[in-house]
Design a protein around this nucleic acid. Structure first.
Lengths: 213, 213
DNA sequence: TTATAATCGATAATTTTATATCGATAATAA
DNA sequence: TTATTATCGATATAAAATTATCGATTATAA
């Protein structure tokens, strides 16, 4: 059966990429097997949690040796559907949008950004890191015609809801949102937010406690 | 008593910035009071959860009307220690580092990046978004002399552990790490990771389920 | 070959986080 | 003034996530 259809705990899904990072390094180092204990020690989590997380992807380990590295990478990759890359558009090619375009690694994470959109005429027509920048006006049409499922939203907060709405009405299935705003989308549209302020909040709060306490 | 010393659930801390974003918008719209119900509706969470989150910061609401917007912003800001901005260094001024420098909003989140570090001689000496870029060699010395507590790490994975080590030995207290690697730091150093792959994993997994199921 | 030790994976217990219930309070309208 | 209603906040319950326990399994060494 297809394990990727199982509903896993969100915390588990968020840890899976960590395992992949480590496993890929091990593969480069020609390590064939790795135990949950070893993974846990490096990632500073409990071994039992690692076993639980991994078992969700359907992998089966061997007592005394652990898991086959390559098989484990494949199992997690399959679970996250990172073996089937989805074509995506990025909307807003400012500093952040460029940084995302510059990071070539997303193809390993199932994401293939094939075009960027912006209103800035200086950018339209240019290629940034090999990706062509198109006028924002053409976004709706191209989402429909090319059946694009994922939109990466890196525009200023003031414009993001409007662009979000137009993507939704064009049939987008998932939005990876970097603008610091609580976007309103219909239930059937998947919305995943990257709000750096959230991560920073944890850091500053811990630091304040440390410095005061 | 100082509420910011209380240990709050991490999920709560991660939601606090969302409240701030919304509240600041309300303030601009001259809204004086807001209820947990209203906040919850906009952010798509349960009202009771909002009340619990907010109460952790020490705020007290008024039955029938809710919370005073301005007071609430102050309460959360204080709790996260975002009223006292910490000076920070950023290490690695590639596409991502530049994007972070370009985002002026971090000052509102308690973070003031006052210098960047890189090995690229073309960048050293230049100013990027008003922040001077210095040679990586001078990092340790400056952390010590300026008593910098926070380092933002935006270098490639291959170099991040080494730089991390040197920051730790120079006395850094907290590291905001953007390189996709599990950094090893002593227990007393606060490590907060931003791994975009984690967020992307949640999105791709949900999308795969949606498209298949 | 047999004993030993490391690890897996199923089940159970614990902890953390989220949600529900309900009396108390204060604004609004009758 | 009094009734009504929305909301708060304390306490209790439920759900989710993590951690512990333990028998089964298999490589390694005696």
């Amino acid at each position: 059966m297809d394990k990727s259809l199982i509903s896993a705990p969100i915390p588990t899904i968020r840890r899976l990429p960590k395992y992949i990072h480590m496993l890929k390094r091990l593969k480069i180092e020609n390590v064939l097997y790795v135990s949950a204990t070893t993974i846990a020690h490096e990632l500073k989590i409990e071994p039992i949690l690692v076993r639980k997380d991994l078992s969700i992807t359907g992998i089966i380990g061997k007592p005394k040796v652990g898991f086959e590295v390559e098989e484990l990478i494949a199992s997690i990759t399959q679970f996250l559907n990172w073996n089937n890359t989805e074509d995506a558009f990025i909307i807003g090619v400012g500093a952040l949008g460029e940084a995302i375009l510059g990071y070539s690694g997303f193809k390993d994470y199932g994401l293939n950004i094939i075009a960027g959109f912006d209103i800035d005429k200086k950018k339209i027509g240019k290629k940034i890191f090999g990706v062509e920048i198109l006028p924002l006006d053409s976004l709706e049409d191209l989402i429909k015609r090319m059946h694009i499922n994922i939109g990466v939203l890196t525009v200023p907060a003031s414009e993001s809801q409007e662009i979000c709405d137009s993507m939704v009405s064009s049939g987008i299935k998932a939005i990876w949102n970097f603008s610091p705003i609580a976007l309103q989308v219909p239930d059937e549209v998947i919305l995943e937010n990257v709000h750096l302020s959230q991560s920073l909040a944890v850091l500053t709060h811990k630091l304040a406690k440390k410095l005061k306490g």
